[in-house]
Amino acid sequence: MTSQESAGTSVTTTRRSKITPEREQEFFGAVLDQLREYGYEALTMEGVAAKACCSKSTLYRQWKTKPQLVAAAVRSGRCVKFSGVDTGSLAGDLRSAARAAAQQAGNDTQLVQALGHAVLSDEELRAALREALIEPELAALGAMVDRAVARGEIAADHPALEFLAAQLLGVLRIRPVLESRYADAAYLTRFVDAVVLPALGLGEAT
């Protein structure tokens, strides 16, 4: 083989192994769909390949293992629900955050439930779940609180602040278990007004 032919072969191989961002998102979408529908244990590389119309070897070449592929897909679905919320008051911010959370409640809850026990035994999956669904919301809630403290609405050491994230994120996860329904905007707003704001000493809706 000549050097020119060798160079041509190298270029061809590189082109074949490269995945465009759009195609990568198709793979990730297939993974997330399979996760929500069947759960982590039942998800297979074969199933993802069939849904994404590709070969198993394509998936294995890029991500090596099922946990690596799932972790990448979870990270790709990162959506900061509370990002950009700034109404000028902590009460207004929390109500807006509740309405924003309701828009993704079904998808997020399904994903958490689908990963189930897998996140307890796989550190990479656990880290991906935190990175995609938990840490962005914690940061956004922290920013809301920091603004409220700066405005003098609430003391930085208010004891209820420690439980704010657990209240808002926890109610999203538990309502499907208790009532077989996702937490919609009306439910979450009522929760904020009846439980969260009084605990913070901010009273009822104004």
Rank of each mutant, 00 (worst) to 15 (best):
Leu94Pro: 11
Ile154Cys: 04
Glu124Pro: 12
Arg173Asp: 14
Leu111Glu: 14
Leu125Gln: 06
Ala105Tyr: 00
Gln110Leu: 14
Ala156Asp: 09
Ile154Asp: 07
Ala100Asp: 14
Arg130Met: 03
Glu123Ser: 04
His117Tyr: 12
Asp146Arg: 10
Asp108Arg: 05
Leu164Gln: 10
Glu153His: 07
Pro159Met: 00
Ala105Ile: 00
Gln167Ile: 00
Gly92His: 09
His158Pro: 02
Ser96Lys: 05
Glu123Asp: 07
Ala155Gln: 12
Leu164Lys: 07
Gly142His: 02
Asp93Cys: 02
Ile174Asn: 13
Gln167Val: 00
Arg126Pro: 02
Leu172Val: 02
Asp93Pro: 06
Asn107Ile: 06
Phe163Met: 08
Leu172Thr: 03
Val112Ile: 09
Asp146Glu: 14
His158Ala: 04
Ala101Ser: 10
Asp157Tyr: 13
Ala140Asp: 13
Ala140Ile: 02
Gln113Ile: 00
Phe163Cys: 11
Leu125Arg: 05
Leu172Pro: 07
His117Trp: 12
Leu133Gln: 13
Ala114Tyr: 01
Leu125Glu: 06
His158Ser: 04
Gly116Asn: 09
Ile174Gly: 15
Gly142Asp: 05
Arg175Gln: 09
Leu120Gly: 15
Gly106Ser: 04
Leu161Asn: 14
Gly116His: 08
Ala166Lys: 12
Glu131His: 08
Gln103Glu: 06
Thr109Pro: 07
Ala166Cys: 13
Leu129Lys: 15
His158Trp: 01
Glu153Pro: 07
Ala155Met: 07
Asp93Asn: 04
Arg130Lys: 07
Glu123Ile: 01
Ala128His: 02
Arg175Met: 05
Ser121Asn: 06
Arg175Gly: 08
Glu162Phe: 06
Arg173Phe: 08
Gly142Tyr: 00
Ala114Trp: 00
Gln113Lys: 05
Pro159Thr: 00
Leu111Arg: 12
Arg99Cys: 13
Val112Asn: 12
Leu129Asn: 15
Ala140Cys: 09
Leu115Asn: 09
Gly116Met: 01
Ile154Trp: 03
Ala97Ser: 13
Arg99Ile: 12
Val145Gly: 09
Ile154Leu: 01
Ala128Met: 01
Leu168Phe: 10
Leu129Met: 15
Arg151Pro: 11
Arg99Trp: 12
Asp146Lys: 11
Ala165Lys: 06
Glu131Arg: 05
Glu162Asp: 15
Leu168Trp: 08
Ala105His: 03
Arg130Asn: 08
Glu153Cys: 08
Ala97Ile: 06
Leu125Ala: 05
Glu153Val: 02
Ala148Tyr: 01
Asp122Leu: 02
Leu168Gly: 14
Asp108Val: 03
Leu172Gln: 04
Val171Ala: 10
Gly170Lys: 12
Gly106Cys: 01
Ala160Trp: 03
Ala156Trp: 02
Arg173Glu: 14
Ala140Leu: 07
Leu115Pro: 12
Arg95Met: 01
Glu123Gly: 05
Gly92Phe: 05
Ile134His: 00
Ala150Tyr: 01
Gly142Glu: 03
Arg151Asn: 10
